[in-house]
Design a protein around this nucleic acid. Structure first.
Lengths: 241, 241
DNA sequence: CGGGCATTTGAAGCTGATCAAAATCAGTGG
DNA sequence: CCACTGATTTTGATCAGCTTCAAATGCCCG
């Protein structure tokens, strides 16, 4: 694609209104396309970066590894997400950004983003707003992870992923590919791969979802949302402001 | 105090460089002082606000309540913290801000902050940067909460609080008042009050900390940091940029 | 000095972790 | 097309950490 930020602008417009001039300035930014295999670390903790990673294909995870080797993924990013928008004001990574599947990522130069933000205060606010949305999702995840058992956590993840996947224009909220292994899911859900399996099994047995290979079909969205206590407000996706 | 934002500017300066003019513009902002007792909700979920809450005294928590009445606190804020800086770009609260102790809070008008941010791009970036720091701490908490047993979680909280308390110029990292009940701590640590008590007891028995009423004395900071796997980088407090 | 919180203590039970291993699948090369 | 290989999913058994419930003690404030 000749205009790497096209999809990112559509993402921003889910939360912010942008003028034609503002969009044109963003569209004019050039970015290097990088193709990586699953497991590749796009950014390592402590690394100083001068670009932000815009996901174009596949899934990127933000994760942290502990002394005993166990890992926790605190966010996942899909096509259209700027995985480390926070690196623009804070260019030293505090976590790893890892390719969870084979991915295509644009390296968007910080300096170009900063220049547009300086010139257009509403772009600056739009970027700030998307950073807030990231924090909002993370904050929600603190609560879900800490207070819900695995079945509610998984239900919540499926609800959120479906909504985000649909909002990104990548598919339907009721049926999508979740291209993550149960091991990767366990690192998001704060549990073990074994338990992820059993949890999937329970949800299938209840007739709430169906799985086939890595595609998820939500048979009873209302039930799933009830199990998860899912309320999409925290994703800040209704373009009201 | 005639200049409500004085302490907030010092907080910003821990992470961003500001010119005299930029500081003056922030200092000129007027804000209403509000005094509340413990348990008071400063902001309720879903509420539309046109001001941000700058903590002046006491502790404010950001928390979420579930259907069964259990609560999770995803962040705590001390004097100098803008508890809901994120409300400037996103003025609809997704969570409650609650006074965990008796508090004094300044209501800082969004419009005033936005005006300064529009005029001074570096102020905009400083505010953005502090939002990133909030997200960074939240993201760390996802990992800690999800992967560490209660003893490491408590150790981590004590390390973080000490560092933040000292950075805010409110005391020393090795000895401070943690004016929270064990019940409130359990809502931060994702456990129960009973378990918080037992965890404190264990850490005391190991000689790592001492407690007296609600004051905490860290006897062996190195051991506490080791237990917690604490590395303060994620707080983004070294004024390097 | 009494009432309301908060802390401390005890006992029982459950959820999810851990460890081990079998079954299945995806991809590779003969 | 099949055998082989490594990764992932599925299954089973045991156990630790934490929750839950109940109650006693301690502390602060009016």
């Amino acid at each position: 694609m000749s205009r790497p930020l096209e999809r990112f602008i559509r993402r921003l417009e889910l939360r912010s209104r942008l003028s034609a001039g503002e969009k044109a300035a963003l569209l004019a930014i050039d970015a290097e396309l990088v193709v990586r295999q699953a497991r590749w670390d796009l950014v390592r903790p402590g690394e100083k970066v001068d670009f932000a990673c815009l996901v174009s294909r596949g899934i990127v995870g933000r994760s942290e590894t502990f002394a005993d080797g166990r890992r926790q993924t605190s966010a996942i990013f899909i096509a259209g997400d700027m995985a480390d928008l926070h690196s623009v004001p804070v260019p030293v990574a505090a976590w790893a950004l890892t390719a969870l599947t084979d991915v295509e990522v644009f390296h968007v130069p910080h300096e170009a983003l900063r220049a547009v933000a300086r010139e257009f205060p509403r772009v600056a606010e739009a970027l700030w707003r998307d950073t807030v949305a990231d924090g909002s999702a993370t904050s929600k995840w603190v609560a879900v992870l800490s207070r819900h058992p695995a079945r509610k956590r998984l239900a919540h993840l499926l609800c959120e992923y479906g909504v985000r996947y649909a909002a990104a224009g990548l598919g339907r909220a009721e049926e999508f590919e979740l291209n993550l292994t149960q091991d990767q899911l366990s690192e998001i859900l704060g549990t073990t791969a074994v338990h992820v399996y059993r949890t999937f099994k329970d949800l299938r047995a209840e007739g709430v979802i169906a799985t086939e290979r890595r595609s998820i079909r939500i048979l009873d969205g209302a039930a799933l949302a009830r199990i998860a206590e899912f309320d999409p407000d925290y994703l800040l996706l209704d373009n009201s402001p």
